[in-house]
């Protein structure tokens, strides 16, 4: 319960810091170009404080950390980050199949064969649509 409250405060604090950064960077811009960033930065700082103030008054937090499956989220984000790297190294086809397979297996799908076959099939369909029909140059380094 307390953790949820802290999470909300930390979120507001992050937004406050982003607002401050926008304000500091924005005030260095010349002439009319600085008006909007300054307004946005100031607005974000004020609103972040307002949010934290409201959070303090509310008895229950809007976020429930206990209900978030951090393992699954972590697997997905790591898989996506690795995918960004692999995409340039080994091309679309293999990296995308790996992405799909790792996420499906990471979510504890009980069939390894299915976890490979489904993404492979999807990549094949997508590849045909994009590369052949829509002429999108998907990188295929290893094909």
């Amino acid at each position: 319960m307390k953790k949820n409250k802290y999470a909300e405060y930390i979120f507001s604090l992050i937004l406050l810091l982003i607002g401050a950064a926008v304000l500091i960077i924005g005030s260095d811009f010349r002439g009319n170009d600085k008006y909007f960033p300054v307004i946005i930065g100031t607005g974000m700082m004020i609103t972040a404080i307002w949010m934290a103030w409201e959070d303090r008054k509310q008895e229950t937090a809007c976020i429930d950390l206990a209900k978030i499956n951090f393992v699954a989220v972590g697997i997905t984000i790591v898989a996506l980050v690795v995918y960004m790297v692999l995409f340039r190294l080994i091309g679309y086809v293999f990296s995308t199949i790996l992405l799909g397979t790792s996420i499906i297996l990471g979510l504890r799908y009980n069939s390894v064969r299915g976890a490979v076959l489904w993404p492979a099939l999807m990549v094949l369909v997508v590849f045909v649509i994009f590369r052949i029909l829509l002429k999108v140059p998907l990188p295929v380094l290893l094909l």
């Binding site: 960004m84 996420i103 799908y109 999807m122």
Partner: peptide
């Protein structure tokens, strides 16, 4: 199965993002 569905939708999302500008920065 949601496990499979989520994996397949992510494949479509990243492919779609790339296709928008033929640029891997768009995936990022």
């Amino acid at each position: 199965r949601y496990e499979v569905l989520n994996g397949l939708i992510l494949i479509l999302c990243v492919t779609g993002a790339f296709a928008t500008g033929n640029n891997d920065t768009y995936i990022v």
